Amino acid sequence: MTNRLPILVILATVTIDAMGIGLIIPVMPDLIGEVMGGDLADAAIWGGILATVFAVMQFLCGPLLGNLSDRYGRRRVLLVSLAVMSADYVIMALANSMWLLVVGRIIAGITAATYATALAYMADISKPEDKAKAFGLIGAGIGIGFVLGPALGGLLAQFGTRAPFWAAAILAGGNALLGWFVLKETVTDATRRAFEWRRANPLGALEALGRLPSMSKLLVVFFLYQVAAAVYPAIWPYFIIERFGWGEGMIGLSLTAYGLCYAIVQATLIGPTVKWLGNRRTVVVGLTLEAVALVYLGIIDTGLLLFIGIPIAALSTVGLPALQGIMSRRVSDDAQGELQGISSSLTSLAHILAPLVMTQTFAYFSSDHAILYLPGAPFLLAALLMVFSIVVFQNSRGGK
């Protein structure tokens, strides 16, 4: 990577995006209860619906924006996405009905291609052997955002459930303004590709990548990983309230602790681990640790054990950047945006399925009529999916 300033701007972009997400997580249970009433289980189910709406739009628009960035440039897509995202947070801050919250999540899903475009930008400016490390830096930026976001969200919650949304709107708008002056374009005439609606179709794009040699199993592994990992944003605040009786402040603190550990792992361990073990063994180690961490979270019953398990959960995230590195090295330079758009679509498909399944599982196993009271059941379900992903990956081939 030869130009550090664009890297810093891209990392700032994903950091602020993650801050915006982390800002609102601590207040979502109370916000939903404030808008529509009901108990915690009802709030969790509606939270799952809002997350699914977001993911549906992300799935539909991910390949479109990825292909647009291949044609018109990463810079333009990033700036427009950030500006609209800022407006979306204003809508969420003013929403007084579930329908307005749904509209806000629709807009947020459309603009959420920032992550995929940021990955494509990093792929553009990285050497093949540095791609896993570059993706790890993106993960570190997200981790830093989750350190700062939940902590700030927990503090702002004392001013009301809407205060974090106003803060997120200001952050996204400010980052768009910064990017306007600083961000440089990486798509050149040599790598620019004509836009084709066929390739922008989410299902058509998935079929295109599925035809690449030995890519299908890696895509399955990536999808299973994303389904399992989606248990965290889908369940965390509701699980924390039900299991430990904590409020917004402690929810924010627990997310901050996880984000800090995550950022440290992504910033310092990805490169050395891949150099030491290679991409494939790093993926296996990461997936195995993920399964262990999910089982642990599923059975704990005290807050102290939660904080003890957070570093293990963060350490397990070494596997995803290595998997992304393997996938990125198997496509040409003029298709990096398309790859990240498809990766975004797979993530969105996972986030369409996971919130509904995980929140329904949580609602049942935390209810009075459950055959077994086990609020951590969604984590155990996610652990099973992670184990299956290990089996599929071990049967794939290629990529060191």
Results as ranks from 00 to 15, higher is better:
367 S>E: 09
262 Y>I: 09
45 I>V: 13
16 I>E: 03
34 E>A: 11
396 S>D: 13
250 M>W: 15
348 S>F: 10
110 I>D: 00
19 M>T: 03
262 Y>M: 11
75 R>S: 04
365 F>W: 11
253 L>V: 14
30 D>W: 11
313 A>G: 12
352 I>M: 14
377 A>T: 09
334 D>T: 11
183 L>C: 06
283 V>W: 00
121 Y>C: 04
305 L>F: 15
269 L>C: 09
78 L>Y: 06
123 A>H: 00
332 S>E: 14
182 V>G: 10
22 G>Q: 03
322 A>H: 00
49 I>R: 13
237 P>C: 08
99 W>R: 12
58 Q>N: 09
152 L>K: 05
3 N>T: 14
265 V>A: 03
96 N>M: 13
13 T>S: 14
282 T>V: 04
357 V>Y: 04
62 G>N: 15
156 L>P: 01
46 W>S: 11
341 G>C: 06
76 R>Q: 11
163 A>W: 05
169 A>W: 02
238 Y>Q: 05
19 M>N: 01
388 F>V: 13
386 M>I: 09
290 E>G: 08
131 K>F: 04
357 V>C: 07
300 I>L: 15
111 T>A: 12
178 L>F: 10
353 L>H: 08
79 L>C: 06
206 L>I: 13
78 L>V: 06
378 P>I: 07
103 V>L: 15
121 Y>E: 02
41 A>H: 12
375 P>A: 08
126 S>T: 10
383 A>G: 05
377 A>L: 09
391 V>L: 14
399 G>K: 13
286 G>M: 03
140 A>W: 00
309 G>E: 06
139 G>T: 02
226 Q>I: 11
